[in-house]
């Protein structure tokens, strides 16, 4: 067993510095690496490029990094629900690249899987395709989209072990698996770090080979963005 477990969050984030490019798992606030974000806030490093489907809300998730003006550029598919984001975007302090959600996922996966680029039909004929190479396959047009290049990927899983194996829960899985191994260093935080051998190899979503560092998060708020319930009849 190759050990990926680090003793504390400080070791987990060792090497992060100004002007780096980071990937963050999560969809809305579900499945975000809460502990890594909290530590990045503490370190207050600046000039970051963040690849993440969303940008958090004003006081949680990546919104915490925005609040301290640590982010130079966001690469996302949807960035609503965040007033500070809007302010920084409109004032020109923050650079924003909006890309289709499936393309975002596939540019991560391409980086993970060793593809330099992929062709996708998404965005053809729209401003997303402007300046990009296009090509026809079997009568349909596609846009060439390049694999991301990132320094760190911060992902969050439900359970993991010291070998770096990960299991996700529910829709908190989202972008986390496709970001594992898509950056130079993948840092996984888990709700529960279990002894090696306890996870059934049949049930593992991401094998430890894609993960360089793993730790158990100190606590998880797991905030719900849009609590929606029905009444009992």
């Amino acid at each position: 067993m190759i050990n990926k477990k680090v003793d504390n969050i400080s070791d987990a984030l060792k090497g992060v510095s100004d002007n780096m490019t980071f990937m963050f798992g999560g969809f809305g606030l579900s499945g975000i690496p809460e502990n890594a974000i909290a530590d990045l806030v503490k370190r207050n490093i600046k000039g970051l490029t963040c690849i993440s489907n969303n940008a958090g809300v004003d006081d949680f998730g990546l919104g915490l990094l925005l609040h301290q003006k640590q982010i130079k550029k966001m690469v996302s598919s949807y960035v609503g629900e965040n007033d500070e984001f809007e302010r920084q975007m409109l004032s020109g302090e923050l650079d924003v690249e909006l890309i289709p959600q499936g393309t975002l996922a596939e540019r991560c996966r391409a980086a993970q899987a060793g593809f330099p680029a992929i062709y996708t039909p998404a965005g053809y004929g729209t401003e997303v395709a402007e300046g990009k190479e296009t090509r026809e396959f079997d009568g349909k047009m596609y846009v060439l989209e390049h694999a991301f290049k990132a320094d760190f990927a911060f992902v969050k899983a439900w359970k993991g072990d010291a070998a770096g194996n990960l299991i996700f829960k529910g829709t908190a899985r989202n972008f986390n698996p496709v970001m594992c191994g898509a950056a130079k260093i993948t840092v996984a935080e888990v709700e529960e770090l279990v002894p090696v051998g306890e996870l059934d190899p049949n049930q593992i979503h991401i094998p430890g080979i894609f993960v360089q560092r793993i730790f158990q998060g100190e606590m998880y708020e797991k905030r719900i963005e849009q609590l929606t319930v029905r009444q009992k009849a």
């Binding site: 809305g28 529910g170 829709t171 719900i224 849009q226 609590l227 929606t228 319930v229 009444q231």
Partner: peptide
């Protein structure tokens, strides 16, 4: 459908971020 009150799970949402 949406969960009954008290049965919501932060890890199970739709694309509108609703439980």
């Amino acid at each position: 459908p949406f969960p009954f009150e008290g049965e919501e799970d932060a890890d199970i949402i739709n694309a509108g971020k609703q439980t």
